[in-house]
Design a protein around this nucleic acid. Sequence first.
DNA 1: CCCTTGCTCGTACGCTGTACGGTGCAGCGT
DNA 2: ACGCTGCACCGTACAGCGTACGAGCAAGGG
Lengths: 222, 222
Amino acid sequence: MSGMSKANRARVALDRDEIARAALAMLDEEGIDALSMRRLAERLGVGTMTLYGYFRGKQELLDAAVGAAAADFTFTPPEEGGLRERLRAHQRAVREVLARHPSLPQLRARQALVQPAAFRMSDPAMQMLLDAGFPPDEAARAFRVLFVYVLGSMLFGPRELTADEQRSIKAGLLLLPEDEFPAITAAADALPASMGGDVQFDYGLEVILDGIEARRRQLAGE
Amino acid sequence: MSGMSKANRARVALDRDEIARAALAMLDEEGIDALSMRRLAERLGVGTMTLYGYFRGKQELLDAAVGAAAADFTFTPPEEGGLRERLRAHQRAVREVLARHPSLPQLRARQALVQPAAFRMSDPAMQMLLDAGFPPDEAARAFRVLFVYVLGSMLFGPRELTADEQRSIKAGLLLLPEDEFPAITAAADALPASMGGDVQFDYGLEVILDGIEARRRQLAGE
DNA sequence: CCCTTGCTCGTACGCTGTACGGTGCAGCGT
DNA sequence: ACGCTGCACCGTACAGCGTACGAGCAAGGG
């Protein structure tokens, strides 16, 4: 048994979890493109190839970083309130985690692979749907709609646009030929505000919750 | 005036559009990671750096590829049918384009920048919402929900999973500790089928269209 | 005391995007 | 007919990437 033999270079310990957390921190601070094996090793005060003693490759390391983020997720569903209120609370909590770790949706988008820990965030929503009387297949489909929407929202419009950004986007839209883009140019005033942020997220969340409610009523026999 | 002076190496012509289309073809055939400036140049029978005479860099070239894909999009809204039927037809057409060019959602996910041509695909949906009586800000918000969902669906579950894939995912889910993931394990049979494909896409589309319909009725005064 | 075991990591390979500057042809002015 | 100018093309080079290979070395067991 080797024990703590790895502390031979005055490094405190270093294990998979510490590396994964460092990777996650780097992702949060500098973004997905700035994370390289070399730079991560340097941050940990370790040779680059040392990381390959803990992970088969960068992919596996990124997976572990996702896991580390998911492990931090805790959510206790509100006692009162029906399905709608509970789902809303949960999806907002998920969105908050994704906002703290903006690279998570991008990682999901690049690699199909998902590891188990990531499901920790999903379980409460599935539970709520099952509790509300959705049969498993219907619950799974409804959950997936929420899942796609929440991740997509962070990917395609994570934050509120500043007034300047909105102005500049609007200016771009107004350059489009009006005969080819009649609706876009007609709504050029309103479009930029819909391209991100919490208000837009909540709007879409309510739209989807409406649809899910309609299905619940249908299942309950009107 | 230089005219067709660029044909000095027996190359037929080569302009921005031809390069963009070659890039798009390469994206479609080999995926986003396989597209490099070197490999694209080789495919075109041209030196790598020649591409930089037409584009400032890889980013601009990718943007042009997105534009080339959007330029191919044609959609004529069905005559009959209400808002719901028309929106459904449009979103399915968009999904088809994305299925032909699976890299498009990934490109959108990586680069915030969007160029005008991409709006060609969006205009019809906006038009339908405006025609249905949605005020511009409401129309923009509703459109954006559809937009995020359609792109997200292609990113996070583009195609139907094979029976084998479903079995293997289910097996993975059943390995999760039952006390920590009660709902996931309970629905392990049903979850894999919800993780992609047209059936799941249509399910979510109807959920969202339900929500949008509810808003339309509300705007119309019940 | 030596030998085995296993972590660490220097070096190297093939790839990437792209900056720089040389090369050679087309068209023009004389 | 000749030389000049401008421009398209692209060879070379650099910094950085993921990672395969194997050398170095400390610790533990005999």
